[in-house]
Design a protein around this nucleic acid. Sequence first.
DNA 1: GTATGTGCAAAATGTTTGCAAGCCG
DNA 2: CGGCTTGCAAACATTTTGCACATAC
Lengths: 139, 139
Amino acid sequence: MTGQRRVIARVLSDADDHPDVEELYRRASVLDSRISVATVYRTVRLLEEKGILERRDFGGGRARYEATEHGRHHYHLIDVDNGKVIEFEDQEHEELMRRVAERLGFDFVSMRLELFGRKRTVQQEAKAPQPSKRKGAAS
Amino acid sequence: MTGQRRVIARVLSDADDHPDVEELYRRASVLDSRISVATVYRTVRLLEEKGILERRDFGGGRARYEATEHGRHHYHLIDVDNGKVIEFEDQEHEELMRRVAERLGFDFVSMRLELFGRKRTVQQEAKAPQPSKRKGAAS
DNA sequence: GTATGTGCAAAATGTTTGCAAGCCG
DNA sequence: CGGCTTGCAAACATTTTGCACATAC
């Protein structure tokens, strides 16, 4: 347990969003400016292998991370207009997928589910100000 | 409509699996050896924008493609031991997700669902010959 | 003191792009 | 011909890695 890992672990457990490596690096740098990106990459990989962290891919090319929650699972709805992530639960879902896997002759290992949606507004603005190309916001 | 696009379109419509760009390039090269990877990238992007192709991410870092199917949707189960992809249908699924989006105040745009599983064998070989790290097979 | 972790910069990987040349209609 | 398409190689973005140095225990 080195200082750097302690700091990165701290940042991760404090986070209630889904930061990517660059964001983790930024936050960790505030607490200890002599941390390098390479160490962040190495640490998240380590923590993922240990099952402490989970890697997510919400599109946009970079991996994002969140602490593993033991017990109730949750899924993600991504707002296609601003990249914001909303978490939701769906009790029946995993059980349903377990049955699908079984039907196909497989043991369920894991699943990935992401929902993409657009905020439902009162005046369904016909020409919403689409934030253009590939600059997804955090969360 | 140039020769190259014709060839690439051909390869795509002939494919009943989920090739990545490298694989498409390989198959296209057989039919016309003077096609470049750049053209394959440009063509799949074009076809995706036109809604003819769909890009998938089954993990492993590279995008994979399959022809858009109008009508019944299907999902994918990835065999974690060899990367093979099995397609399956689940009638109720999309309707379920539409309701979830609605409950959260969103209009459903699209969803992503992947199931990861391991083949259920008779003699659950305790130490299966895991094909090591990151060399997912085709399909 | 030794195994392990780190910083840095270079390499690897997958994808995109600028540009000059080529093909299509 | 005039514009869209190509090939090539260079540029990109993210992630990994080799190596010498630093740190933990």
